[in-house]
């Protein structure tokens, strides 16, 4: 592999994104996603950070008329995630996602976690059992649910549901996990749990997280990107962004003068 890719799991290059109505939501956005690190996307509402995140697993393909330009390269195989020739389903099998509001299926806890494996055609009960346990442990939910795996997922609390969704995303061994404001619907204690979990998860995979909460970005991320009006204003190590940003706009935003 090329030298400059070392330690980089994925990279967006000059990404433009247009919604079906013609609005350009992303303008020439470039961003590296470092391997086994947490990269946070911050910025005011409507700046395009969620839109950007959802390009990584081609979620925009679900709605007709949306259009991408540019590349998101996935290393080490240099696959351009956005290429027409790459099946979005293949992309989603490699890059999983956790949403803003916990969205478990109205099925049992076990079935929620097993679903990704079932979609991949896994039939072996033993193997699925094993993976479900591993994923639930990985999402630090196992001890709370191991005696009631067949209960409905809706019976869990909000924070538990979100950890279940993380387990669901984890069960298929993704290379990157996308988090779209994963704690904005949760109480402070559940938020702490999820943040701790994310810090553990980065040992296994690379994380890209959108957050409204600047303190959260500062607490958990290794790199931070500040976006505004569809543009990438600044990207750097989190320490640098929060202590000594090089752009005036970034400083205004993180000091609360704006946004």
């Amino acid at each position: 592999m090329a030298q400059n890719n070392l330690g980089i799991k994925a990279e967006a290059k000059d990404l433009n994104f247009y919604y079906a109505n013609g609005t350009q939501a992303l303008k020439n956005v470039s961003l590296p996603v470092h391997e086994n690190k947490i990269t946070a996307l911050i910025g005011p509402s409507g700046c395009g950070k969620s839109t950007f995140l959802r390009c990584f697993n081609r979620m925009h393909d679900l709605y007709p008329g949306n259009r991408y330009e540019g590349q998101i390269l996935l290393y080490p195989d240099n696959t351009n995630v956005l290429s027409k020739g790459v099946d979005p389903i293949e992309v989603r099998m490699r890059i999983s996602m956790v949403f803003q509001k916990p969205n478990p299926f109205p099925k049992s806890i076990y079935e929620n976690v097993a679903y990704g494996l079932r979609v991949r055609g896994e039939k072996s009960k033993v193997k699925i059992d094993e993976k479900v346990e591993e994923a639930l442990k990985g999402a630090s939910l196992w001890n709370e649910v191991k005696t009631r795996l067949n209960d409905l997922a809706f019976n869990l609390s909000g924070g538990q549901q979100q950890r279940l969704c993380i387990a669901r995303a984890l069960a298929t061994d993704p290379e990157i996990m996308l988090f779209d404001e994963p704690t904005s619907a949760l109480d402070p204690i559940a938020t702490v749990n999820i943040e701790e979990l994310m810090s553990t998860l980065k040992n296994k995979l690379s994380i890209l997280v959108v957050t409204h909460n600047m303190q959260q970005a500062a607490r958990i991320s290794d790199y931070t990107a500040y976006m505004y009006l569809g543009e990438m204003i600044e990207f750097d190590a989190t320490d640098k962004i929060f202590t000594n940003p090089s752009k005036k706009e970034t400083e205004d935003y993180i000091t609360g003068k704006f946004g």
């Binding site: 697993n57 979620m59 679900l62 389903i89 293949e90 989603r92 099998m93 999983s96 996602m97 949403f99 509001k101 969205n103 478990p104 299926f105 109205p106 679903y115 990704g116 079932r118 979609v119 991949r120 969704c165 669901r168 995303a169 298929t172």
Partner: peptide, 23 residues
Amino acid sequence: IPIAIREAAYAVGATKWQVVLHH
């Protein structure tokens, strides 16, 4: 059926037919 549930299914790599059948 909420969009969030559909998106959840697609996000783990389900095809349209699997989403229809399983959800």
